[in-house]
């Protein structure tokens, strides 16, 4: 018996998770980080900003790499 063949999707699983990850990262930190920062009311030690910048850079890098690989534009 022939095994079921995989379904070709318009978007790869990596791109889908990358996009959902971007939404989750920005959505999750919107009310506790981005909006307070834009209003000038968020106060934290410098290391918190550095950690946030690094973690967001990872997520952005992951999403952009999966996007470029998916569209063979690298």
């Amino acid at each position: 018996m022939k095994a079921a063949s995989p379904i070709k999707s318009r978007f790869s699983l990596f791109l889908i998770i990358g996009l959902i990850g971007l939404f989750g990262a920005f959505g999750g930190f919107m009310s506790t980080f981005f909006i307070p920062i834009s209003k000038g009311v968020f106060k934290a030690p410098t290391i918190i900003y550095i950690h946030g910048a690094l973690a967001f850079s990872w997520i952005l890098l992951y999403a952009s790499q999966t996007f470029l690989i998916h569209y063979k534009n690298y």
């Binding site: 699983l13 990596f14 998770i17 990358g18 990850g21 989750g24 990262a25 959505g27 999750g28 930190f29 009310s31 506790t32 973690a55 990872w58 997520i59 992951y62």
Partner: peptide, 23 residues
């Protein structure tokens, strides 16, 4: 390679999903 990186990304997203409790 890409599946390890996918799992690492899912793991690092944990604090973001946990902040959805504020909504």
């Amino acid at each position: 390679h890409k599946r390890f990186m996918l799992l690492a990304t899912i793991l690092v997203l944990w604090p973001a999903w946990f902040r959805f409790r504020h909504y």
